[in-house]
Protein backbone atom coordinates (compact mmCIF):
# COMPACT_ATOMS: atom_id res chain seq x y z
CA UNK A 1 0.00 0.00 0.00
CA UNK A 2 2.74 2.39 1.01
CA UNK A 3 4.67 1.36 -2.09
CA UNK A 4 1.70 2.09 -4.30
CA UNK A 5 1.45 5.52 -2.76
CA UNK A 6 5.14 6.10 -3.44
CA UNK A 7 4.72 4.99 -7.04
CA UNK A 8 1.86 7.45 -7.45
CA UNK A 9 4.05 10.16 -6.07
CA UNK A 10 6.99 9.26 -8.34
CA UNK A 11 4.64 9.20 -11.31
CA UNK A 12 3.27 12.61 -10.50
CA UNK A 13 6.64 14.25 -10.14
CA UNK A 14 8.11 12.63 -13.27
CA UNK A 15 5.12 13.68 -15.30
CA UNK A 16 5.46 17.22 -14.07
CA UNK A 17 9.09 17.27 -15.12
CA UNK A 18 8.25 15.86 -18.53
CA UNK A 19 5.43 18.28 -19.19
CA UNK A 20 7.77 21.18 -18.49
CA UNK A 21 9.34 20.62 -21.91
CA UNK A 22 6.53 21.07 -24.36
CA UNK A 23 8.44 20.07 -27.47
CA UNK A 24 8.90 16.60 -25.98
CA UNK A 25 5.22 15.94 -26.56
CA UNK A 26 5.46 16.28 -30.33
CA UNK A 27 8.77 14.50 -30.57
CA UNK A 28 7.56 11.53 -28.59
CA UNK A 29 4.37 11.44 -30.64
CA UNK A 30 6.42 11.49 -33.83
CA UNK A 31 8.66 8.71 -32.57
CA UNK A 32 5.71 6.57 -31.52
CA UNK A 33 4.14 6.83 -34.94
CA UNK A 34 7.48 6.21 -36.62
CA UNK A 35 8.02 2.98 -34.76
CA UNK A 36 4.46 1.88 -35.42
CA UNK A 37 4.66 2.86 -39.08
CA UNK A 38 7.98 1.20 -39.81
CA UNK A 39 6.90 -1.90 -37.87
CA UNK A 40 3.64 -2.36 -39.79
CA UNK A 41 5.17 -1.45 -43.14
CA UNK A 42 7.92 -4.02 -42.56
CA UNK A 43 5.32 -6.76 -42.21
CA UNK A 44 3.49 -5.54 -45.30
CA UNK A 45 6.73 -5.74 -47.30
CA UNK A 46 7.65 -9.17 -46.00
CA UNK A 47 4.26 -10.77 -46.49
CA UNK A 48 3.99 -9.18 -49.90
CA UNK A 49 6.74 -11.64 -50.91
CA UNK A 50 5.69 -14.76 -49.02
CA UNK A 51 2.46 -16.11 -47.51
CA UNK A 52 4.03 -17.62 -44.41
CA UNK A 53 7.48 -17.92 -42.87
CA UNK A 54 8.08 -21.09 -40.87
CA UNK A 55 4.35 -21.29 -40.19
CA UNK A 56 3.94 -17.64 -39.18
CA UNK A 57 1.38 -15.69 -41.23
CA UNK A 58 0.73 -11.96 -41.37
CA UNK A 59 -1.96 -11.83 -38.62
CA UNK A 60 0.09 -13.92 -36.19
CA UNK A 61 3.23 -11.85 -36.80
CA UNK A 62 1.20 -8.65 -36.48
CA UNK A 63 -0.10 -9.82 -33.09
CA UNK A 64 3.50 -10.46 -32.11
CA UNK A 65 4.44 -6.96 -33.27
CA UNK A 66 1.65 -5.63 -31.04
CA UNK A 67 3.11 -7.50 -28.09
CA UNK A 68 6.58 -6.21 -28.95
CA UNK A 69 5.36 -2.62 -29.08
CA UNK A 70 3.41 -3.12 -25.85
CA UNK A 71 6.45 -4.44 -24.02
CA UNK A 72 8.54 -1.64 -25.49
CA UNK A 73 5.95 0.85 -24.25
CA UNK A 74 6.01 -0.55 -20.73
CA UNK A 75 9.77 -0.60 -20.77
CA UNK A 76 9.81 3.04 -21.84
CA UNK A 77 7.13 3.94 -19.33
CA UNK A 78 9.11 3.23 -16.21
CA UNK A 79 11.58 0.30 -16.37
CA UNK A 80 14.19 1.92 -18.58
CA UNK A 81 13.92 5.48 -17.27
CA UNK A 82 14.20 4.24 -13.69
CA UNK A 83 17.08 1.85 -14.22
CA UNK A 84 18.92 4.23 -16.54
CA UNK A 85 18.86 6.90 -13.86
CA UNK A 86 21.18 4.59 -11.95
CA UNK A 87 23.16 2.67 -14.52
CA UNK A 88 22.82 4.70 -17.71
CA UNK A 89 24.92 7.49 -19.13
CA UNK A 90 24.88 10.38 -16.66
CA UNK A 91 23.29 7.99 -14.19
CA UNK A 92 23.82 8.13 -10.45
CA UNK A 93 26.76 5.74 -10.54
CA UNK A 94 28.55 7.96 -13.04
CA UNK A 95 27.69 11.15 -11.22
CA UNK A 96 28.40 9.72 -7.79
CA UNK A 97 24.96 10.55 -6.43
CA UNK A 98 24.01 6.95 -5.77
CA UNK A 99 25.05 7.56 -2.16
CA UNK A 100 21.78 9.39 -1.63
CA UNK A 101 19.79 6.48 -2.98
CA UNK A 102 21.68 4.11 -0.70
CA UNK A 103 20.65 6.21 2.29
CA UNK A 104 16.91 6.31 1.55
CA UNK A 105 14.87 4.28 4.03
CA UNK A 106 13.11 2.33 1.27
CA UNK A 107 13.92 -0.97 -0.42
CA UNK A 108 16.60 -0.06 -2.93
CA UNK A 109 15.41 -2.37 -5.68
CA UNK A 110 11.95 -0.90 -5.44
CA UNK A 111 13.37 2.60 -5.52
CA UNK A 112 15.59 2.13 -8.57
CA UNK A 113 12.87 0.26 -10.46
CA UNK A 114 9.94 2.60 -10.09
CA UNK A 115 11.07 6.11 -9.48
CA UNK A 116 11.17 7.59 -12.98
CA UNK A 117 8.23 7.57 -15.35
CA UNK A 118 7.86 8.77 -18.92
CA UNK A 119 4.22 9.44 -19.43
CA UNK A 120 4.52 9.80 -23.22
CA UNK A 121 5.38 6.13 -23.48
CA UNK A 122 1.65 5.68 -23.03
CA UNK A 123 1.34 6.65 -26.72
CA UNK A 124 3.27 3.49 -27.50
CA UNK A 125 1.10 1.45 -25.18
CA UNK A 126 -2.12 2.73 -26.78
CA UNK A 127 -0.86 2.22 -30.34
CA UNK A 128 0.38 -1.25 -29.40
CA UNK A 129 -3.01 -2.20 -28.04
CA UNK A 130 -4.53 -0.97 -31.28
CA UNK A 131 -2.22 -3.21 -33.32
CA UNK A 132 -2.91 -6.13 -31.03
CA UNK A 133 -6.69 -5.79 -31.27
CA UNK A 134 -6.54 -5.40 -35.03
CA UNK A 135 -4.37 -8.52 -35.30
CA UNK A 136 -6.83 -10.49 -33.17
CA UNK A 137 -9.64 -9.45 -35.50
CA UNK A 138 -7.52 -10.54 -38.49
CA UNK A 139 -6.85 -13.87 -36.83
CA UNK A 140 -10.63 -14.29 -36.90
CA UNK A 141 -10.69 -16.30 -33.72
CA UNK A 142 -13.19 -15.89 -30.97
CA UNK A 143 -11.22 -15.42 -27.83
CA UNK A 144 -12.28 -17.78 -25.11
CA UNK A 145 -11.83 -16.64 -21.54
CA UNK A 146 -9.21 -19.35 -21.05
CA UNK A 147 -7.11 -18.10 -23.94
CA UNK A 148 -7.42 -14.51 -22.81
CA UNK A 149 -6.35 -15.41 -19.28
CA UNK A 150 -3.41 -17.50 -20.41
CA UNK A 151 -2.38 -14.68 -22.76
CA UNK A 152 -2.46 -12.16 -19.93
CA UNK A 153 -0.54 -14.53 -17.69
CA UNK A 154 2.17 -15.03 -20.31
CA UNK A 155 2.28 -11.29 -20.95
CA UNK A 156 2.92 -10.81 -17.25
CA UNK A 157 5.68 -13.42 -17.37
CA UNK A 158 7.21 -11.53 -20.30
CA UNK A 159 7.15 -8.24 -18.45
CA UNK A 160 8.86 -9.95 -15.52
CA UNK A 161 11.47 -11.43 -17.86
CA UNK A 162 12.11 -8.09 -19.51
CA UNK A 163 12.36 -6.30 -16.19
CA UNK A 164 14.65 -8.94 -14.72
CA UNK A 165 16.98 -8.91 -17.71
CA UNK A 166 17.25 -5.13 -17.56
CA UNK A 167 17.77 -5.20 -13.79
CA UNK A 168 20.49 -7.83 -14.09
CA UNK A 169 22.31 -5.88 -16.78
CA UNK A 170 21.94 -2.66 -14.82
CA UNK A 171 23.37 -4.32 -11.72
CA UNK A 172 26.59 -5.01 -13.63
CA UNK A 173 27.32 -1.30 -13.40
CA UNK A 174 28.43 -1.89 -9.81
CA UNK A 175 31.31 -3.95 -11.13
CA UNK A 176 32.19 -1.82 -14.13
CA UNK A 177 30.80 1.67 -14.00
CA UNK A 178 32.27 2.74 -17.32
CA UNK A 179 30.21 0.38 -19.41
CA UNK A 180 26.67 0.87 -20.61
CA UNK A 181 25.38 -2.63 -20.03
CA UNK A 182 21.73 -1.63 -20.35
CA UNK A 183 22.37 -0.62 -23.94
CA UNK A 184 23.23 -4.20 -24.83
CA UNK A 185 19.91 -5.54 -23.66
CA UNK A 186 18.08 -2.62 -25.29
CA UNK A 187 19.80 -3.50 -28.55
CA UNK A 188 19.09 -7.19 -28.25
CA UNK A 189 15.45 -6.49 -27.47
CA UNK A 190 15.02 -5.50 -31.12
CA UNK A 191 15.34 -9.18 -31.96
CA UNK A 192 12.04 -9.78 -30.16
CA UNK A 193 10.26 -7.95 -32.99
CA UNK A 194 9.90 -11.23 -34.87
CA UNK A 195 9.01 -14.77 -33.77
CA UNK A 196 12.04 -16.50 -32.36
CA UNK A 197 11.28 -19.42 -34.70
CA UNK A 198 12.41 -17.34 -37.67
CA UNK A 199 16.00 -17.19 -36.49
CA UNK A 200 18.73 -19.76 -37.12
CA UNK A 201 18.96 -22.52 -34.51
CA UNK A 202 22.06 -21.22 -32.74
CA UNK A 203 20.53 -17.77 -32.32
CA UNK A 204 17.21 -19.24 -31.22
CA UNK A 205 18.92 -21.11 -28.40
CA UNK A 206 20.71 -17.97 -27.22
CA UNK A 207 17.53 -15.92 -27.37
CA UNK A 208 15.57 -18.52 -25.45
CA UNK A 209 17.86 -19.54 -22.66
CA UNK A 210 20.74 -17.11 -22.32
CA UNK A 211 19.23 -13.72 -23.06
CA UNK A 212 15.55 -14.60 -23.13
CA UNK A 213 14.34 -11.76 -25.37
CA UNK A 214 13.06 -14.35 -27.82
CA UNK A 215 10.60 -15.72 -25.29
CA UNK A 216 9.19 -12.34 -24.38
CA UNK A 217 7.08 -11.90 -27.48
CA UNK A 218 6.84 -15.39 -28.94
CA UNK A 219 5.33 -17.03 -25.88
CA UNK A 220 2.44 -14.58 -25.38
CA UNK A 221 1.77 -14.67 -29.13
CA UNK A 222 1.54 -18.45 -28.99
CA UNK A 223 -0.73 -18.22 -25.97
CA UNK A 224 -2.97 -15.91 -27.95
CA UNK A 225 -3.24 -18.30 -30.84
CA UNK A 226 -3.92 -21.17 -28.43
CA UNK A 227 -0.90 -23.18 -29.57
CA UNK A 228 0.99 -22.98 -26.29
CA UNK A 229 0.93 -26.13 -24.19
CA UNK A 230 0.15 -25.87 -20.46
CA UNK A 231 3.54 -27.40 -19.73
CA UNK A 232 5.31 -24.67 -21.70
CA UNK A 233 3.19 -22.11 -19.88
CA UNK A 234 4.29 -23.48 -16.53
CA UNK A 235 7.92 -23.57 -17.61
CA UNK A 236 7.77 -19.96 -18.79
CA UNK A 237 6.22 -18.84 -15.55
CA UNK A 238 8.79 -20.65 -13.43
CA UNK A 239 11.61 -19.45 -15.66
CA UNK A 240 10.50 -15.84 -15.38
CA UNK A 241 10.23 -16.03 -11.60
CA UNK A 242 13.63 -17.70 -11.38
CA UNK A 243 15.11 -14.94 -13.55
CA UNK A 244 13.54 -12.35 -11.27
CA UNK A 245 15.06 -14.03 -8.22
CA UNK A 246 18.44 -14.25 -9.94
CA UNK A 247 18.39 -10.61 -11.02
CA UNK A 248 17.37 -9.44 -7.55
CA UNK A 249 20.19 -11.48 -6.06
CA UNK A 250 22.66 -9.94 -8.49
CA UNK A 251 21.39 -6.47 -7.65
CA UNK A 252 21.82 -7.09 -3.94
CA UNK A 253 25.34 -8.35 -4.54
CA UNK A 254 25.94 -5.17 -6.49
CA UNK A 255 24.82 -3.05 -3.54
CA UNK A 256 27.17 -4.98 -1.28
CA UNK A 257 29.98 -4.44 -3.75
CA UNK A 258 29.17 -0.74 -3.81
CA UNK A 259 29.26 -0.54 -0.02
CA UNK A 260 32.69 -2.13 0.21
CA UNK A 261 34.32 -0.39 -2.72
CA UNK A 262 36.67 2.53 -2.60
CA UNK A 263 35.12 5.98 -2.31
Amino acid sequence: MRHLKLIASFFKVSTQAELAYRSNFFIRLLNSFLSLGTGVLSLVVIFNQVETINGWSLPGTLALLGIYLLLGGLRGLFISPSLESVAGMDGEIWQGTFDFTMLRPVDKQFLVSFRNWRIYALFDVVLALGVLIYAIILLGETLSLGILLSFLLMLLASVILLYSSLLAFSALVFWNSGFLFTWIINDLFQLARYPVGLYPDWLRLILTWIIPVGLMTTIPAQALSGTLSPAMMAITLIFSLATLAGASWLFRRGLMKYASASS
Binding site: K5, L6, S9, F10, V13, A17, A20, V106, L111
Partner: peptide, 19 residues
Protein backbone atom coordinates in the same frame (compact mmCIF):
# COMPACT_ATOMS: atom_id res chain seq x y z
CA UNK B 1 20.14 14.94 -4.18
CA UNK B 2 17.60 17.11 -5.96
CA UNK B 3 15.77 16.37 -9.18
CA UNK B 4 16.94 19.14 -11.50
CA UNK B 5 13.89 19.26 -13.72
CA UNK B 6 11.30 20.10 -11.13
CA UNK B 7 10.85 22.80 -8.48
CA UNK B 8 12.29 21.96 -5.05
CA UNK B 9 8.88 21.90 -3.43
CA UNK B 10 7.92 18.83 -5.48
CA UNK B 11 11.15 17.05 -4.63
CA UNK B 12 10.55 17.78 -0.95
CA UNK B 13 7.08 16.29 -1.15
CA UNK B 14 8.41 13.04 -2.62
CA UNK B 15 11.13 12.89 0.02
CA UNK B 16 8.58 13.38 2.77
CA UNK B 17 6.77 10.32 1.48
CA UNK B 18 9.94 8.29 1.19
CA UNK B 19 10.74 9.18 4.80
Amino acid sequence: AMNWDIPPLDSFKVLSEIY
